[in-house]
């Protein structure tokens, strides 16, 4: 299969198609940089979508739970080793992604006879101010991109993400209180997961139907004396 360039490209294409097909039913995740901190949200079955990685770092993702768990553990290991051997301030999202996570995911993706990571990821880093927050999307093949607008959406179908990000940019100002931001993100979640229309003008106040799933929301809080900034937000 790998002896001819065309076959290799074809195999890669098949693999890409396979992964996208596998994550098709995944529940979308969101990260928004607010004045209060970085808010992450997923809708799942509890402790399955949004995770603390380090003092100022968090992960949200969709895909196979076992692969998400492998990625989570990989990031936690790398962050704590770096913090211990150097200093917690040296743990940065850019280095975690570009020197640890991305190369490992790419290597696994290109090993044709090994199972790829069935995940799409959203990583966040809390900065001292909002303009220093970082949100990075990481794909199953190791490619990654920095979210430039202070918010990022990872959905089962990447083609849906841009429109929802546009809508959120218009309806979610940075001064929004995290609890209210969750309500807006849930409208976007309903749109991506169940095809509901995205409302324009005044947003509805009724809580959307979550189909028996739980809201998993966490805030990397900017103004706190605690070293570990991650805190889960209970569903209202």
């Amino acid at each position: 299969m790998t002896e001819e360039p065309y076959r290799w490209l074809e195999a890669m294409g098949n693999r890409r198609e396979y992964v996208l097909n596998q994550v098709k039913g995944g529940s979308p995740v969101f990260a928004v940089s607010l004045e209060a901190g970085v808010l992450l949200l997923g809708v799942g079955s509890g402790q399955s979508k949004v995770f603390e990685i380090f003092d100022r770092h968090a992960l949200a993702g969709l895909g196979h739970p076992a692969d998400l768990e492998r990625v989570r553990q990989m990031l936690i290991d790398a962050a704590h080793l770096e913090a211990f051997t150097r200093a917690p301030e040296d743990v940065t999202l850019r280095r975690l992604v570009s020197f640890n996570l991305s190369p490992q995911i790419k290597t696994v993706f290109e090993q044709l006879f090994a199972p790829p990571f069935l995940v799409r990821l959203l990583l966040s880093e809390l900065g001292a101010t909002r303009d220093r927050d970082s949100l990075i999307k990481v794909q199953f093949d190791g490619t990654y991109s920095l979210a430039a607008r202070g918010l990022a959406v990872v959905a089962a179908d990447p083609a849906d993400e841009a429109a929802v990000e546009d809508w959120l940019t218009r309806h979610l100002p940075a001064t929004t209180e995290p609890g209210l931001a969750i309500d807006t993100l849930l409208l976007a979640w309903r749109h991506l997961a169940h095809g509901d229309e995205l409302p324009e003008g005044e947003l509805p106040t009724a809580k959307p139907d979550l189909a028996g799933l739980e809201i998993e929301a966490a805030l990397l809080r900017r103004s706190t004396m605690r070293v570990a900034r991650f805190e889960t937000i209970p569903a209202r």
């Binding site: 402790q47 995770f51 603390e52 990685i53 380090f54 553990q73 936690i76 290991d77 704590h80 913090a83 211990f84 570990a228």
Partner: peptide, 11 residues
């Protein structure tokens, strides 16, 4: 580091 590592990795 070890207490936080345990808490984060083991949830």
């Amino acid at each position: 580091t070890s207490f936080e590592y345990y808490r984060r990795s083991q949830l």
